[in-house]
């Protein structure tokens, strides 16, 4: 009983102490889009955005924790306050700007690309796989090809392997390691397509203070060149930098 009392008091002290402590920023990501973000073999969030996010939090003097969620519900969960930022390879687009705010881009406007099993896969009239709710899915819908949407990036690639789709359309930096490590199975099809205004951190419209902090931190990383070093480290020497 006495121990219980002590334990309860200790817990209460902890809880009330935490309430006064600095606010923790919860970073929301998908965890299924290597090398941007993925769950590593230790079961932790890893990737370019993990390293970047941790560095940004350090520079902005914020305490951050990482949360993963389905891509499908990533915006509604931000709005209902389950986490405070979206840092998940999300391109800055006008449609998204209407429902949330973005920081300046931390990744330059990069090319999207088609990948298929043969170089002459039909990308204008055939079936093209893309992840649901991405700018790539929007582009395919307008291109005249039949759009096949999947919940996760991995499934879009698997769809091409299984013959359900003729090609997959995604960020080129996501497809590049898949194509190069497939041993000739996959090949890029057609021209690269520039899409979106780069990748930024998504925040609630009302979180102007937090957005200011991240904006400043991104700017400082752009200024001292650490952002470019990080991009090269994760995406290779050919990747676009600032």
């Amino acid at each position: 009983m006495k121990n219980l009392l002590i334990a309860t008091t200790a817990t209460l002290a902890l809880v009330s102490g935490a309430a006064f402590a600095q606010q923790t920023v919860r970073m929301g990501t998908e965890g299924a889009y290597p090398p941007y973000n993925f769950i590593n073999d230790q079961g932790e969030v890893d990737g370019f955005e993990r390293e970047l996010g941790d560095e940004l939090c350090k520079r902005a003097e914020l305490t951050c924790t990482w949360v993963t969620t389905d891509w499908d519900s990533i915006i509604p969960n931000l709005q209902s306050g389950n986490y405070d930022t979206i840092i998940a390879g999300m391109s800055i687009t006008d449609e998204r700007e209407e429902v949330l705010d973005f920081t300046q881009n931390y990744f330059p406007p990069a090319a999207s690309a088609y990948a298929g099993l043969s170089a002459d896969a039909d990308i204008t009239g055939g079936v093209v796989a893309a992840q649901v709710g991405t700018i790539q899915a929007g582009h395919v819908a307008e291109s005249g090809a039949t759009l096949l949407e999947y919940a996760t990036p991995d499934e879009t690639v698997a769809a091409v392997r299984n013959g359900e789709a003729d090609a997959v359309f995604a960020d080129k930096d996501f497809l590049a390691p898949i194509v190069s490590e497939s041993g000739g199975e996959f090949t890029f099809v057609g021209e690269d397509v520039p899409l979106g205004g780069g990748i930024g951190i998504g925040l609630r419209d009302s979180d102007d203070e937090l957005r200011g902090k991240f904006d400043a931190a991104i700017q400082s990383m752009k200024d001292d060149g650490t952002l470019n070093t990080m991009i090269t480290k994760w995406f290779g020497a050919e990747a676009k930098t600032f």
Binding site: A19, Q23, T24, V25, Q79, G81, R204, D205
Partner: peptide, 25 residues
Amino acid sequence: TEPIRNGLEFRVCPQAKVPPGAAPQ
């Protein structure tokens, strides 16, 4: 004083977050 419902957003004061934002995962 700020509105809790703001368009699509739902925003309560940080002390009212359940569970608290600083709580472990």
